[in-house]
Design a protein around this nucleic acid. Sequence first.
DNA 1: TCTGAAACGTTCAAACTCGAACAAATGAGA
DNA 2: TCTCATTTGTTCGAGTTTGAACGTTTCAGA
Lengths: 383, 383
Amino acid sequence: MSSEQTPETGGKSLFSLQRRERLMEELRAHGAITVRDIAAKLGVSELTIRRDVNTLADEGLVSRVHGGATLPSPLDRSVAVGRPSPHSYSIGMVVPSLDYYWPQVISGARGEAEVQNLRILVRGSAYDAADNRRQVQALLDTQNIDGLIVAPDMGGAHGKELLRWLNALPIPVVMAERRAPLEIPSHRLEWVATDHSFGAGMAVRHLWQEGHRMIGCLTDSTSPTSPHVVRGWKQALAALKIPLDASIHEDSAKLDNGDRAKHFDHVLELCRTSGTTAMLVHSDTQAVAFVQHCVDKGVDVPGSMAIVGYDDEVAYLAEPAISAVRPPKSYVGKVAVQLMAARLAEGRMRPVHRIDLNPELIVRDSSLGAPVLPTDSVLEESL
Amino acid sequence: MSSEQTPETGGKSLFSLQRRERLMEELRAHGAITVRDIAAKLGVSELTIRRDVNTLADEGLVSRVHGGATLPSPLDRSVAVGRPSPHSYSIGMVVPSLDYYWPQVISGARGEAEVQNLRILVRGSAYDAADNRRQVQALLDTQNIDGLIVAPDMGGAHGKELLRWLNALPIPVVMAERRAPLEIPSHRLEWVATDHSFGAGMAVRHLWQEGHRMIGCLTDSTSPTSPHVVRGWKQALAALKIPLDASIHEDSAKLDNGDRAKHFDHVLELCRTSGTTAMLVHSDTQAVAFVQHCVDKGVDVPGSMAIVGYDDEVAYLAEPAISAVRPPKSYVGKVAVQLMAARLAEGRMRPVHRIDLNPELIVRDSSLGAPVLPTDSVLEESL
DNA sequence: TCTGAAACGTTCAAACTCGAACAAATGAGA
DNA sequence: TCTCATTTGTTCGAGTTTGAACGTTTCAGA
């Protein structure tokens, strides 16, 4: 039977139906899968996944290829069963990355598009307004889309201009994980976004409940999520009557990897002098790096430093496994498509919708238990 | 929640119904169950649970898999799983009034409940937290509701206590036209509300576009909508670089009808001295009264004073007909039911949703055209 | 064209689950 | 009190799922 060590399933066996659901999620997220990767990820044999792929291919849900499967292809003549009727509408989807975070949004979107009988065309872009616009224009020019789902970069003058342009497009636009600032005309734009300030607040309250009384925040302000995380952290401190000016907030934007170790040393020193025993760290990759740094310096996690990450993309891979705030990425994609489908069906009669989704806190080893008060000598020695 | 015929019609043991409810609770909590675990947990044979699973699968509530059951899966082809056909939930709905504004919310809710095959029980209450709680408790005690839609009064200590109580109820709660403040624990509450600050902003921008350069605001702070309207008015003034401290904001809370005429005179005098040629008036009833007062005093509407109301309940009845911001009341009710239906179907897997709906500006006679600059003598004569 | 690595398909076994058949217990109604 | 229907439990043969082993096929690179 299956391996008990696989991180993805947390040691739990999935039923075959759930395994095929996961397989479809991965396929929608990435467009193609290999039998080997999925078997490793789900902790089962390649033969089992191969059987699953065959079953799904027989149902017309995937196109089987050597070594794996792809989303159903019009070139695939092996299936005769389950071909959907012609799509009612086409929607374009432009995301800033096809890695880290966005594949699950795409997977949710593709799954819902299937349910709603919509054709969806996904394009990867960058955290760059000019490139976003180029990709959108390409979809408009070549694909005849009826609606657009986009996660635009909104920084700087280019970003603001992009929003005005999106607001003026002749087709409906839904933003995923973005909210237009008040000062930009955006009355036609709909959006669905994770409430990151709520997520940060949840992490702070969790750490407070575990006994921490000084809780810091380490962010990366190159990320559009960062301001929301900081706002939630501040609001939660205020609600708990923790003085903000005594609390650590550091940012690692624009640091090279070499500088980052020094910066982490600096953060640990600030923690020591301020009595901070817990940190909310955005994003997950930085949390993993910070945990590793702590361990390298002999700072016990969570005994001397409790850590909560953000995004829950790789937090589980660390040793110890890191607690994390997990945005409902799949739902973001799904709800974006639902908004679009309703807009296309109902037109102007329907009021503009703007939706916040709450994340979930996944508690793992890195934040369990009350702080073990460190003696100064332990931290001195580790620095 | 009963998926079978009620016990009083005989033939079904109450225990078997309760067992299936427990089974469904476990399923919604975990996404999947094994026959073995549930049989052990409930102290019955695996065959009994297997029979239950078969029954629930036949009703479309679960997907049966080898060894157990999962939540209904799109990959499950054995039954039409999209909509559980016989199953119906009851939801309670408590609104502060059965007049003015709320009938359309109720209508939207009832329509959608019909579409979703839900039983909906509506109770009128008051703008009073204690009465709200009494009505909710009555529904819980006597009607066996599975979910609650409510527009609670959140003012004062009673209001905050009501929110905490609603957050802790064992059934899902959706708020209509309400948002919990940050400081109250409300992580389970979902809501759909009109974005009144956006609405107020829209009205200000409309008046600006008609040529008005000083735009005041007249509110009634006994209404929960009022703070949002004021915030939107302020934000829009800021965006248009209209100085806030030179702009008129008056409130008519706590005035008797007799005092209101004097207050309106006072407002008109402030307009005259400040050069204000347009007013956003919340709510509609106050806008109608203000327009009538202006006409009585010889102040030409919209020539000397342009007016936009709020709520669009009676604005069209006035002479001249009054422009108004119209919240999408029917959609508020409809979306509240959609949130509840999805919550009941999906359980904890679904993230908490919070939805803003944008209102619409209905332009009528009362705000058309540029201001005709009034001579002082005309206004002197009218006072 | 040839070769080696990777992937695939078949067969068989192990482990687990299913459900038919039958029996026992319980409750409702005559 | 009796009868019938319903619910629940036990037994055991049949069915399902998964993985190991091994032979076959496919693909990429020399």
